[in-house]
Design a protein around this nucleic acid. Structure first.
Lengths: 228, 228
DNA sequence: TATATTATGTGTCTAAGATACACTTAATTT
DNA sequence: AAATTAAGTGTATCTTAGACACATAATATA
């Protein structure tokens, strides 16, 4: 059964770019690396592919291990494979990015792993090609947010239209007209209006909405394309 | 220097989905596999990552080896990593897709490697998860063609508007109105009209154009977005 | 108690772009 | 000389994006 006898295996790492939104800014989770090489430096959450684990499963496990979350939006980003990317030895890394709802994750667990959330501005230098990974993930997030309703993955289950708008403004680094934004997003017919109001941010309070995933998926089948 | 001593390396394969356009249909290049397992079955062009080669370089070399082409559009598609995807042993595969100009590639070289071009309809069953890879590459091509001028990678340097339209119709499996299509594509200002006519397909003949890459890139810098 | 303040919610007008559609032109075939 | 075929171009209409203004709910302030 040794079909590929003469081929040389290499180490396969997994790295994960984890996005969160704290109602004001986009944040990324990084950790202080606790093993050599580059021990003590900031790094993406990472690990190694186990020979008996599917790649995607391995990535999910990695994330669950750090945040306590399962069932989150997670997608493969890119496989980084330059020869010298890891000074330790030849390691290629398959990077994933995840969008999580900040209020649902296990803060203590994160802290116990020396994890910390940074905004892009505050982000320290990371090891190896991890800065590059973040840049690529950001591009992907921006691109993807334009034609798929992934913004909701970063918000609580219940959110207001102004909150949603702010998120998209932060992602795309721009400003939208309030009236046009709500008109557009509501016209898609993929939001369920609730009878509750969120009163934390304004005197008047804003109505809460939920993303109607089933309705969205039904529309997609009919050829609907989300586009912001 | 043995930092990752306890980690287990795995084999990393490379597979390439190669698209071509023969003035009528979209085609894909596959080969008859000449080694076990699954020897004699149809497969994507593939190989193994060499420990001393960058991943991207390795993929380019693979393609050049088979088609004789360098300097072609090639992008990483996805890393496929299910445990049982290769019955031989644990092998993860980084898939790339390439868009090539059919008339420029080395036909004899391809044939000497048992390569053959198939349309999607005629495509035989491929080994392992290669069918899945093709499906994913197709999705990517369709998605990408919508907002980036990659169609030109599949056409000769000189092409006519009707040819370009047909290509996009084939990619998107739809029909466009001739007048609206040419109006739209010409309005982008990224095509150079030549003083020659292509007379093979019609009595009247159609003017030849070239994709003006420099102009396109200059426009991109100014915030221009190609969108079909 | 009345008024000011602040963010939310909604309606309209305009301009630009997408789409539908018809005639002319160049060159070959009959 | 007439018919055929694909190419090239113009216009009218409809939809959508974008700019913009006023009304509303609830608290804060005078």
């Amino acid at each position: 059964m040794d079909f590929y006898q003469e081929k040389k295996p290499v180490l396969v790492a997994l790295d994960c770019i984890i996005f969160g939104f704290d109602k004001k800014e986009l944040k990324l989770l990084v950790i202080k690396r606790d093993f050599e090489p580059s021990k003590g430096n900031w790094s993406l959450v990472g690990g190694f592919l186990q020979p008996d684990e599917d790649l995607d499963i391995s990535a999910k496990n990695l994330l669950q291990h750090l945040t306590g979350l399962s069932n989150i939006f997670m997608e493969q980003l890119h496989c980084f494979g330059n020869v010298q990317r890891d000074p330790g030895e030849r390691v290629i890394s398959v990077a994933y990015y995840a969008l999580i709802k900040l209020e649902e994750h296990d803060q203590e667990l994160v802290e116990s792993h020396n994890g910390k959330w940074f905004t892009l501005d505050e982000m320290p230098d990371l090891i190896f090609d991890h800065n590059e990974m973040i840049m690529k993930a950001l591009q992907r997030l921006r691109q993807k947010a334009r034609y798929q309703p992934i913004g909701f993955e970063l918000l609580p289950d219940k959110f207001t239209i102004p909150e949603l708008q702010l998120l998209y403004e932060v992602i795309h680094q721009t400003n939208f007209d309030r009236r046009n934004f709500s008109k557009k997003i509501l016209s898609k017919g993929i939001l369920k209006k609730l009878n509750e109001k969120q009163k934390e941010t304004s005197k008047k309070g804003a109505f809460l909405y939920k993303f109607d995933k089933k309705k969205y998926e039904a529309l997609v089948v009919k050829g609907f394309n989300f586009e912001l």
